[in-house]
Amino acid sequence: MRDPADPADLLDWYDRHARVMPWRVGPQDRRNGVRPDPYRVWLSEIMLQQTTVAAVRDYFVKFTTLWPRVTDLAAAADADVMAAWAGLGYYARARNLLKCARVVASDHGGRFPENHDQLLTLPGIGPYTAAAISAIAFDAPETVVDGNVERVMARLYDEHTPLPAAKPILTDHARALTPQHRPGDYAQAVMDLGATICTPRKPACGLCPWRSSCVAWANGTAAELPRKSPKKKKPTRLGIAYLARRVDGAWLLETRPEKGLLGGMLGWPGSDWSDAPEDAPPIRAEWRELSEEARHTFTHFHLRLRVRTALVPMDREPQRGTFRPAEDFSPADLPTVMRKAFDLAHPAK
């Protein structure tokens, strides 16, 4: 029988090895009375959903420089926020980001509620994010379970039920370990352990503060956990993107519908995305199709976009979209798949 994992051992490890991140208040600062800003905790957690820490860092710094308080973000123009988010993916997060900021500003006096159940009423905040804000920002003993925590728990208890069926089992294990003392630091400590020691491949078990309690380590099964159910094969959809430039350099762009993929984002007018997309040129022109496709993978499907370009005269009016002057356009404002189409049409020199 192995000794049960002790949260105090993990917290001792975290005090020495906590990752330094722009949204985090480190353990020493917390002991010195520095309290995390709930706005920064919330913003980082939304950005980190299905996105790596490395990808989020620069976006987080950009957002908190442009909009240092939740009330600043609430007052921002939709287009500016969507442009700043471009490239980070999962664009419904950006739309909910604005909705949530505005609710906090208008209904809560610019302060995030400390109550877990109240947090769940805010746009874009689900059980994980509410628990993370409660624990990290307000030091409430909420159970925070992301992919890193699931992996740590699966190995600690040698749980072989495949994900996603194992989620409630692993959450119960995580809940049993969540301490009343320093729960915010503990939540971040488990995530750090999974990200730096108990990694998906080649876990560094020799450095783990919970090694003596880890059943999978004792049984030699750590490297094969957590188990996962086979993924369904992603279908491939086809589409056409139309890149029209006026002779004065202006680009024909449109804001995509609020609902649906890339909702609210700036992009090129295009066809539907399907097995057999129909031609849908946004303006009368002599279109030239490029030899390469813009390819991108979304959560549920692969997309292959044929790219067509055209130069149009000043007096030609589009059926869809509006022309944006060249000085007001930056490819960086486009979501990744749209930027891929632009890069094919105008490769960097």
Rank of each mutant, 00 (worst) to 15 (best):
R2Y: 12
A5Y: 01
D9S: 13
Y14H: 14
A18R: 02
V20T: 15
P27T: 08
R30L: 10
G33W: 01
V34C: 06
P36I: 00
D37K: 02
V41E: 00
L43E: 01
I46A: 00
M47D: 01
A55D: 10
V56F: 00
V56D: 00
F60Q: 04
T64Y: 04
T64P: 04
W67V: 00
W67K: 02
R69M: 12
A76G: 08
A77L: 13
D78T: 15
V81M: 05
Y90A: 07
Y91E: 13
R93S: 07
R95V: 06
L97K: 06
C100D: 01
V103L: 11
H108I: 09
G110Q: 09
P113D: 07
D117M: 11
D117N: 12
Q118W: 08
L119N: 07
T121Q: 14
P123W: 09
P123K: 10
G124M: 04
G126K: 10
Y128R: 05
S134I: 04
S134Y: 01
F138K: 08
A140T: 11
V144H: 00
V145D: 02
R151Y: 05
M153W: 00
L156N: 01
E159T: 15
H160M: 12
P162Q: 08
A165I: 11
K167S: 12
P168C: 07
T171F: 04
D172N: 11
A174G: 11
A176D: 08
L177R: 05
T178L: 03
T178K: 00
H181Y: 10
Y186F: 15
Y186C: 04
D192W: 01
L193T: 02
A204P: 01
G206L: 04
C208L: 05
C208F: 05
P209Q: 05
P209N: 10
W210Q: 06
W210I: 11
W210P: 01
C214S: 12
N219V: 04
G220Y: 09
E224K: 14
R227I: 06
S229A: 15
K231A: 15
P235L: 10
L252K: 05
E254Q: 12
T255D: 12
G260F: 13
L261A: 10
W268N: 01
P269M: 05
W273N: 05
S274Q: 10
D275R: 13
D279H: 14
P281N: 14
P281S: 13
P282H: 09
P282W: 04
I283A: 11
I283D: 03
L290H: 15
H296M: 09
H302S: 10
V307C: 12
P313N: 10
D315E: 14
R316S: 14
P318C: 10
T322Y: 09
R324K: 13
R324V: 15
E327N: 13
F329T: 05
F329C: 08
P331V: 09
D333V: 06
P335N: 06
P335A: 05
T336D: 15
A341S: 14
F342R: 12
L344Y: 09
L344H: 06
A345Y: 11
A345W: 09
A348I: 14
